[in-house]
Each structure stands twice: as C-alpha cells, then as structure tokens.
C-alpha cells in the first residue's frame, strides 16, 4: 500500500492538507488503502478529538458525537428508548468487532461496496472518473434501482444512515472556514455525471456530530433488513420506519429505504400519501408502489422493487398493530 503519514487531529477547524483524509474507525478506509482504491498521503486521526459523547439537546433530541462508536450508540439507553429504529439498524450492521471500531461519522462516510469500485483492475466512474461503469451490464444485483445515473448505480451500504434518514437527523460539519448543518438526507449526492463525489462535503469539512431531533412517536419505530445470510452481510433491502397512528389513521409517518439508492432513501412521496389515510396493509403497499414508480431496475436487481414494497408494508403493519395494542 502507498506510504502515508499519520497525524492526530488537534481541532475540527484545522486545515486539512490537499491529499489528506480523515481516519476514524478505519473499518472501510484502511481496506480501501490496501486495495489501492484510496491513496491518501496523510491520514488525520480524528478519534482523539472530544467528539465521543452523546448529549441531550434542550428540545428533547440527542446530539451524537462523530466518534461515538456504533456499538456504544446502539447500546445507549436513550437511543434504545427514544429511537429504537436507530439501535436496531446499528445492530443489524457488520459484526461486533466492526461495530466496536466504526464511528458515527465514519459510518456515514463509508463508501459503496460495489464490486467494481473495490477492484482497481476494472473500470469504475466513481473510482476513476470517465473509465466507465461495467456494473450496468455486469454485477449489479445489489446496486441501485433509485437515484442512479448512466454513470453510476452504486448503493450506499450503511444501515445506520437509513435510520437517521427516517428520523430526520441533522449532520453538523466543521472546517477552517466555519460550521454548517446538513440534513442527513442531503449529505450524500446523487451521482449524476459526477459519481466520484459521494457527498456535498468540501475537502476538509469534518463531521463533528449528528443531531437527532425530538420525535416522540419514534418510540414506535423499527428497522428491518433483508440480507443474503442471517448475519454479517450488507442489506439487499431495508426499511426504517416510525409510525404515529390515531383512531386507525396515520397521523405521521417516517419512512426510509436502504440498499436501493446512492443515499439512504427517504420515501417522502409514500409518507405524503399515507398521512391522514387509514393505517392498512393495502395503503402501505400502495404508498410504497407510488414511491417506487421512480425505480429503474436493471436485469438482476428488479427484485428490490418487490422486496422493498413487501418490507415496507410488513414493517408499517407491525408498527400499526403494535400501536393498536397499547
């Protein structure tokens, strides 16, 4: 692997050298460096920064520091009580060892596991802009049906991010030029003709925290993940949802999908359709179908359309019946 310099970050506001990259848990970046996919000259370790706390926000929300480990976040009693969807999503991901290393910010910034992206002996527009995308004709069984482009159909692999998208989390970002807040659903770009740019972050912008807004009905939320084996596999389809039902009607709903798009896919069309409607299995299916009208499946990933609608209806139906049972 390419020789690199290792430094420790002193402050989130420090200037990041041009060929430097932030290092947190390293569970993805180090692999990519071994493969020759990522070749930074400098690694700036952010794990010594004081960003490893989960703190209460005045409005009842929570601020999750960027270097809070996935396992710690999943186990936090406040997360488990107020945002069970997030805890479930985290625990559905990776393995115990990886969750002990992986961080909140790093999880968001992990890169696609598209097999071409990971193999420098093949073309890939995300890794080598302009080289082409063999996935469209080749191995795309687990690539995007929504939000892709001719240039790229990569999927974002995170489970955690899908839950954060459903919860409407805000990503706090800092750099030498200041601070800003980005909705987690806006953090990842759709590829268009620039698939090399995963996110809207500028070079040197560091994620410092993720804010979870107060969302009382998220106590009734869930994450369900379908995968090719029982554990330790990326999702082939996943749903994060929170549901507020009163008198059999959907008062509010949050719905996001994983493994179908270059970003965690917030299903706003489906949400809009459901609000005020009876909380029935049929309506859940119809809402999912409406959202999936935008889907552009290829030869081997059309099953994701069926899988996603089935998962959506199953999760919402279960949340609805759990609500009725109270």
């Amino acid at each position: 692997m390419k020789t690199f310099e290792y430094r420790t970050a002193t402050a989130a506001s420090a200037v990041l050298a041009p060929d430097a990259a932030f290092l947190a848990g390293g569970t993805n970046l180090v692999d990519l460096m071994k493969l020759g996919v990522a070749t930074p000259d400098v690694l700036v370790d952010v794990t010594k920064l004081p960003l490893d706390r989960i703190t209460d926000l005045p409005d009842g929300g929570l601020r999750v520091g960027a270097t809070v480990r996935n396992s710690d976040l999943a186990a936090d009693p406040r997360i488990r009580e107020r945002y069970p969807v997030l805890s479930q999503a985290l625990l559905a991901g990776a393995s115990g060892q990886l969750r002990n290393m992986a961080t909140t910010g790093g999880n968001l910034l992990q890169r696609t596991r598209c097999t071409y992206f990971m193999d420098p002996s093949t073309p890939c527009n995300k890794r080598a802009p302009g080289s082409g995308c063999p996935a469209r004709a080749g191995d795309h069984r687990n690539l995007a049906i929504l939000g892709g482009s001719e240039a790229c159909i990569a999927t974002h692999p995170s489970d955690m991010a899908v839950a954060l998208a459903a919860l409407g989390a805000q990503v706090r970002v800092e750099s030498a030029t200041g601070e800003r807040t980005i909705a987690v659903t806006e953090l990842h770009r759709l590829p268009g003709d620039r698939p090399d740019l995963d996110t809207v972050l500028d070079h040197g912008e560091m994620i410092t925290a993720v804010d979870l807004p107060a969302l009382p009905f998220a106590t009734r939320s869930a994450y369900r993940k379908a995968r090719d084996r029982a554990s330790y596999a990326f999702a082939v389809g996943s749903v994060a949802a929170a549901l507020d039902v009163a008198d059999g009607l959907v008062r509010d709903v949050r719905l996001a999908w994983g493994a179908v798009a270059p970003r965690p896919w917030r299903a706003t069309t489906a949400e809009r359709l459901l609000r005020g409607r009876p909380a029935t299995h049929e309506n859940f299916l119809a809402a999912a179908d409406e959202e999936l009208r935008a889907a552009r499946p290829l030869r081997d990933n059309a099953y994701k359309t069926t899988l996603t609608r089935n998962l959506t209806a199953a999760v919402l139906t279960r949340l609805a019946s759990a609500g009725e049972a109270r």
Binding site: R113, T115, Y116, M118, D119, S121, T122, P134, A137, G138, D139, R141, D228, R229, A230, S231, Y232, A233, F234
Partner: peptide, 29 residues
C-alpha cells in the same frame, strides 16, 4: 443457500472475490 462466484462475462472475473462478497454461512445461519 449462499455460495456463488458472481461472474462478469465481460471482465472474465468473479466480481465478489472476497469474503464480504462471497458469502459462506455465518454463525447465525
């Protein structure tokens, strides 16, 4: 249930050539 070398005919390569992509049963299976 799990194992399959996923061939890309154009590349002449099994694309899932690591143990993240080539699935064998996990303990939970």
């Amino acid at each position: 249930l799990h194992e399959e070398g996923v061939l890309d005919p154009a590349m002449g390569e099994w694309m899932n050539h690591d143990l993240a992509g080539y699935h064998i049963p996990a303990h939970a299976d």
